[in-house]
């Protein structure tokens, strides 16, 4: 059954882009820089794949997490400079996205959930629908559902700032000016551990994100993120 509202929605979807240019451009730069950060970050991590809590830690002291990979000394030295290059790309792109999103009201229009949607039964309904691998209704595709909105907000305002904070908290130059960045977390090693944990959460997000693209139609989703 085709209702009038559906037709209107379809017409609107066809004429206005699904994603504004700001979102499309920054999205792909973020994808590339996060990929670079993951590769170089792994290069740094393998030189000491143990994680600690507090200020100090090393071989011979108790650890929090022992990753089941061998110690490979060396790559961290030349991976770190590239890690910083990609970090700058990500930070500058993130800033552009933040400022641009406030100006274009992207956060308010596309990411802030409607009050009516912020109910547990709505959220559970969306999640269970997706868990049963049910393709969303055509009109639902033209806008983000409540779970998408909450997740994107958590990634933009929670995960990325946390990764940036914990990265900066490991810098002696930065903590000499803002010691609280390290002390609030319990110390230098805690910052390193939280940095790693946040990256694992980000990876989980990316995996679910890609799975959901497959559900909605992978290439179609990718195309709309490129051409609008």
């Amino acid at each position: 059954m085709i209702s009038e509202a559906n037709v209107e929605a379809a017409v609107e979807t066809a004429s206005t882009p699904r994603h504004i240019a700001l979102v499309r451009i920054t999205h792909w730069i973020v994808v590339l820089s996060v990929l670079g950060l993951l590769i170089t970050g792994t290069g740094i991590l393998v030189s000491h794949p143990r994680l600690y809590w507090g200020e100090t830690g090393g071989v011979g002291t108790p650890s929090l997490i022992d990753l089941p990979i061998p110690f490979i000394i060396g790559p961290s030295v030349w991976n770190r400079p590239f890690h910083f290059f990609f970090a700058w790309v990500l930070v500058l792109t993130g800033l552009t996205y933040m400022v641009g999103s406030f100006i274009t009201q992207h956060f308010r229009k596309d990411l802030l959930p409607a009050k009516a949607d912020l109910r547990w039964n709505r959220i559970i309904a969306v999640v269970s629908e997706h868990l049963r691998w049910r393709r969303p209704e055509a009109d639902a595709v033209s806008t983000y559902n409540v779970v998408q909105r909450l997740t994107y907000l958590a990634v933009v305002f929670g995960l990325f700032p946390a990764i940036l904070w914990t990265g900066l908290a490991m810098s002696f130059g930065v903590t000499s000016v803002f010691p609280i960045l390290a002390t609030a977390l319990g110390g230098h090693q805690s910052a390193r551990t939280v940095h790693f944990t946040c990256v694992v959460l980000l990876l989980l997000f990316v995996i679910v994100h890609i799975l959901m693209l497959c559900l909605a139609g992978f290439w179609r989703s990718v195309r709309t993120m490129i051409t609008g």
């Binding site: 200020e55 130059g173 903590t175 000499s176």
Partner: peptide, 30 residues
């Protein structure tokens, strides 16, 4: 490429740390 990040990091930190900001110091028990 690496020089871009290095320059941004160095310049930012030099502007931030101008005026001899001190590294964190600890107690004997630490």
């Amino acid at each position: 490429i690496v020089g871009i990040g290095e320059t941004l990091t160095y310049a930012t930190q030099r502007l931030l740390t101008s005026g001899h900001s001190l590294a964190r110091e600890f107690k004997r028990s630490d």
